[in-house]
Simulated assay, not measured.
Amino acid sequence: MRLPPLKTLPVFEAVARLSSFSLAAQELHVSQSAVSHQIRQLEDWLGEPLFLRTGRSIRLTEEGNQYYEHIVAALGQIQRASEQLQGNEDSQIRLAAYSSFAVSWLIPRMQQLQRQHPQLDLDLEMLSDLPHMSDRVGDCFIAINPRQRGFSSDLLYSEQMFPVCSRSYWQQMCDELLEAALIEGPEPDWIETAWIQRFTLLSATSIFEKKNEDWARWLAADDQRMQADTRVQHFSHMLLAHEAARHHQGIALSNDYMFSPDDSGLVRLPCHNLDTGDEFHFAYKTSRRNEPAIRILRQWLLQEASRSGLRKG
């Protein structure tokens, strides 16, 4: 078996993760020159440069980045195998999830997770956009429609979007619709899609990465088009539009993990839903599926998604 100098690999992992020779030296309790020597030794053995050095900054080369992905996974497997043999398995786990899902659904339930599984040490990474799944980012992921070789996943939620607004804004809407003789009572059981454009729409570009696209698709689901005179307030993220709706600024599109029927601050409007086609999955490396921390988190997420009504069937 032809292996590189094994003592160089933890040094390489630390430098790559910290993007710094000096910080790696501090973490490993060695001199910076010793770190530099180990990296040179590894690069000489591989016959490839692993880092680009520009002044005081460094970054991985393309080859270095590919090598890092394999090395960090291999070192992790060695660590976990050793802990299993010692009977001292690490219960720490890093979960990377979209910020809207993490803030609106996961964080409010983390205390319950800690009560049920006190041995689990969960580090939560909130991401606005999920990159290529790898051990460098997290041990497991909540990802939309994951299709990556070497990973398994379980469906948590099939997204549907629907309009919401504050209770006071809803009352204002009802008053205006009643005055226009479009409804007969104070709070209708159903409102027509076309009436929505009489009011301010709060649009989030993060959903479909295009201005007005969220409302354009919602309207199109009922064979409607956005009118030129429709008032639209734009936000970069769904969380911002949702919060603006809570503060009486208009109507936002929400979904089941962001909206709770118990939330007295928001009202779900009696309109149609938009099936976005996005499916949220709990994803993890197939080779790591039997690790206790991943098994515990997987089981809890599936149970909680079903219990809360997020996961149907």
Rank of each mutant, 00 (worst) to 15 (best):
D123F: 12
L156K: 00
Q171M: 08
F162S: 02
Q148F: 05
M173W: 01
R147F: 14
P131C: 15
V103E: 03
L182Y: 00
A194I: 13
S134V: 02
N145W: 06
V103L: 04
T200A: 11
S99C: 08
L177A: 11
D175R: 06
R80S: 10
A143D: 04
T200F: 05
L75D: 01
L177I: 10
A204D: 04
S128T: 14
V103F: 05
E192G: 08
A204P: 00
A204E: 06
V164D: 01
D90R: 04
M133Y: 02
L177N: 01
D139V: 07
P118V: 10
E184F: 10
R136D: 09
W105M: 07
D90Y: 07
V164H: 00
C140I: 12
Q77E: 13
Q160F: 12
C140F: 01
I78K: 12
C174I: 14
A81D: 15
G76C: 07
A143F: 05
V103N: 03
F162R: 00
L156Q: 02
S166D: 01
I107R: 04
E89F: 10
L178N: 06
G76D: 03
P146T: 12
E184V: 09
D135S: 14
A143P: 07
D135Y: 09
R198S: 06
G150T: 08
F151C: 15
L178A: 12
E176G: 13
L106I: 15
F199P: 02
L156C: 04
D154V: 11
H117L: 14
Q148S: 09
S134Q: 04
G138A: 14
I196M: 03
H132Y: 08
L113Y: 03
Q119W: 04
Q111D: 10
A181D: 15
E125F: 10
V137T: 06
F141G: 01
Q197V: 07
Y98R: 03
Y157T: 02
E179H: 12
W105V: 05
Q79E: 13
S91M: 07
D139S: 05
E187V: 13
N88D: 07
E176Y: 06
Q92H: 13
L113A: 07
Q86M: 13
L156Y: 00
M126V: 09
E159Q: 07
Q112R: 01
D139G: 05
S100W: 04
L122N: 04
F101Y: 08
L95H: 00
P118F: 14
Q86I: 10
D121S: 11
E89V: 06
